[in-house]
């Protein structure tokens, strides 16, 4: 209970600090906020003075920064994150849609990565020192270095242009998820494989595996019941870190594949100086990251009893 209360307090303080810093950033960078907003609506460098004056009045941009921030904070506490400067629609609606898209993309990507990485990493560990291990290790190490902006066009070239089996862009059905997921999954898959391998090697050398085998448990059953479960702990931690990162959206992948997710939304909000959207977007993402970390700790404790009951062993 104390653990949860502490976590919630950390979350509240973190969100407060982050929201203040994020609010300040657009005002600390050079340029007139009203001109930036107008340029987002009308793509012209020249700005109509009357329109600028109208914008300053509408959004109260001439008021002191702290007053503007106080207004935002008051609204946020009532659940009102304001209207986007650009679309003039509630920011909550924009974020909800984008976050759902990105969450689906991120979780699908990481599940795909896990599905490949756990068997592959386990195989490398079991066949440690053999050509199979060398091949898996070398290939996954190489995959870590493959950038998304290179991989995405290559996949489009092969699967959309040459073979014509998958859509090259859009968010229109399960088929449109395949190429973005593959692009994003390569790097986490490589890391997950390497961590699974290292973790499995540790677990395989531990006394309880030897004991299980001595009790007559078969190799496969030992691996599943004792090996993989214990080896998964560090992979789960890595999974949660990747998840928190991917929820922020991948600008490159979302732009190339024209996916209406968080990465594209935040990128466009920054370009358009859409302060309410940036503010709400970053605060939501930080909140989610803290939440995921907390959940990971809970899952960690569930998978590893020694974490949730340290007083027993102590």
């Amino acid at each position: 209970m104390t653990f949860l209360v502490k976590r919630l307090m950390v979350l509240a303080v973190t969100l407060f600090v982050v929201s203040f810093v994020v609010f300040l950033i657009p005002y600390l960078t050079p340029g007139d906020p009203a001109r930036k907003i107008l340029r987002a609506r009308v793509g012209d460098l020249d700005a109509d003075p009357e329109a600028l004056a109208g914008l300053r009045e509408t959004y109260g941009l001439d008021r002191p920064l702290l007053v503007q921030y106080g207004d935002w904070l008051g609204g946020a506490l009532r659940g009102d994150l304001g209207l986007s400067y650009t679309s003039r629609t509630p920011v909550v609606d924009m974020l909800g849609g984008a976050l759902t898209v990105t969450a689906v993309l991120a979780i699908s990507t990481l599940l795909l990565a896990l599905l490949v990485a756990v068997p592959l990493g386990s195989l490398a560990a079991v066949r440690r020192g053999t050509p199979v291990d060398t091949a898996i290790t070398t290939v996954t190490q190489a995959f870590v270095a493959v950038p998304e902006y290179w991989l995405a066009p290559v996949l489009v070239l092969v699967f959309s242009l040459q073979l014509g089996v998958l859509p090259s862009a859009g968010w229109e059905g399960p088929a449109s998820m395949v190429l973005p997921c593959l692009t994003l999954a390569l790097r986490p898959m490589s890391y997950f494989t390497q961590v699974t391998r290292a973790s499995m090697i540790d677990v395989l050398g531990s006394p309880h595996i030897t004991a299980a085998r001595a009790r007559g448990l078969g190799f496969g059953a030992t691996m599943l019941r004792h090996g993989v479960r214990n080896a998964l702990l560090p992979v789960l931690t890595l999974f949660s870190l990747w998840l928190a990162g991917l929820l922020g959206g991948s600008v490159v992948v979302e732009v190339i594949f024209s996916i209406p997710g968080m990465g594209r939304l935040l990128y466009e909000s920054v370009v358009n100086n859409d302060v309410p959207a940036i503010q709400a977007g970053i605060v939501s993402l930080v909140g989610l990251a803290v939440l995921i970390t907390t959940l990971t700790d809970v899952v960690h404790a569930w998978v590893n009893p020694t974490v949730r009951a340290p007083h027993v062993s102590g």
Partner: peptide, 21 residues
């Protein structure tokens, strides 16, 4: 279960357009 939930969630986010090829 996770896969099924994910598929349902994904379907809700698609724009429902028909990809003409």
């Amino acid at each position: 279960t996770v896969s099924a939930a994910l598929t349902l969630a994904a379907c809700g986010t698609f724009d429902g357009g028909t990809a003409s090829s």
